[in-house]
Amino acid sequence: MHCFSARAARMKWTLVLAAACVVAAGQSCAAEPPADVTVTRGETIDVGGTKNILIRPAQPKGSIILLTGGDGRLNVMPGARFNAGADNVLIRNRDAFAAQGYNVLLVDLGTNLAAAVDTMAALKHPVIVVGTSKGTQRAAEGLAQGAKPDKLVLSSGFLSAASGEGDSVMSLLGSPQRLPPTLVIHHRDDHCRWTNPAGVAPFATWGGRQVQVAWLSGGQDDAENPCRFSAHHGFAGQDEAFVSRVLAFVRQ
């Protein structure tokens, strides 16, 4: 009887802990840590004291720098490995850019963009910075601090006050004179509250002849997570069209 009572008490306590974990973290305590991803033909390099991953084709035509969205973390490790952000539209299409003959740099949080541009410029011009979602804010911050890429791509961007809450590319740059030739890629049905499609037109007007706009439609949406990779915001189901628009601009 005593043994049964003790076992029951332990079981009850285990259930309490599990329930507490679900309430506090929004997921089960048994959730496994994210798996490491190894980048094919990649190498981990140091850029201004921060680990990034570089993919180098045999005869590069130029260099593309990828700034992921969200909190910007990839958690880059030695051996061209990372374990965060693999589903982001830029990161999941890294091989598609490299397959077309471009050096590709996967940028981790904390990387100085000017240092990244200089690193890639030493390998091959032109250097194109591509940012998506909150990565567009980091791109603007880098340009404001002196980074000078040859071209810029802003997808699902925090572009203007009409985009929604938060710092916009316009407010962070202050002047359109800091813009290199720029492509905006946006989904017509992006429902993320920070990247409303209404923010595109004011940005294009502000940037003038420096700015081109490419709209995408269709694909897959995720009504419950409108700001995620699985929604129009993340160009779900449109990887080929997305990569094609970026590369067409890069080749101009």
Rank of each mutant, 00 (worst) to 15 (best):
C3I: 08
A6M: 12
R7A: 13
A8G: 05
A8W: 08
R10A: 06
M11R: 10
M11V: 13
T14L: 07
L15D: 07
A18W: 13
A19H: 04
A20P: 10
V23Y: 10
V23S: 05
A25E: 14
P34Q: 06
V39C: 09
V39E: 13
V39I: 14
G42S: 08
G42P: 12
E43I: 01
V47E: 12
K51C: 05
K51R: 13
K51Q: 15
N52E: 05
N52Q: 05
R56E: 12
R56D: 07
K61Q: 13
S63L: 06
I64N: 09
I64S: 08
I64R: 03
L67M: 13
T68G: 07
V76T: 12
M77D: 11
P78N: 15
G79Q: 04
F82I: 14
N83R: 15
G85D: 07
A86S: 14
D87N: 14
N88Q: 09
N88L: 12
N93L: 08
R94C: 05
Q100V: 05
G101N: 01
Y102D: 10
V104R: 02
V104D: 01
G110P: 09
G110M: 09
A115Y: 00
A116V: 10
A116M: 15
V117S: 06
T119Y: 06
T119C: 09
A122N: 15
L123R: 06
L123N: 00
P126M: 00
G131D: 05
S133K: 05
K134R: 15
G135W: 10
G135Q: 06
L143K: 01
L143G: 02
K151S: 12
K151M: 08
V153I: 15
S156R: 10
S160N: 03
A161I: 08
A161Y: 04
G164L: 15
E165T: 12
D167F: 03
V169A: 00
S171W: 05
L173D: 06
L173C: 04
G174H: 02
P176R: 00
Q177I: 03
L183C: 10
H186W: 02
R188L: 07
W194N: 06
P197G: 00
G199R: 04
G199T: 03
W206D: 02
A214W: 02
A214V: 09
A214H: 13
S217P: 02
G218N: 02
G218D: 10
G218T: 11
Q220N: 13
Q220F: 07
D221S: 12
D221V: 01
A223C: 02
R228P: 04
A231F: 06
A231L: 02
G234S: 03
G234L: 13
D239V: 03
E240T: 13
F242S: 09
F242A: 10
V243N: 10
S244Q: 14
S244N: 15
R245M: 10
V246D: 10
V246Q: 11
V246L: 11
A248M: 08
Q252R: 11
Q252W: 07
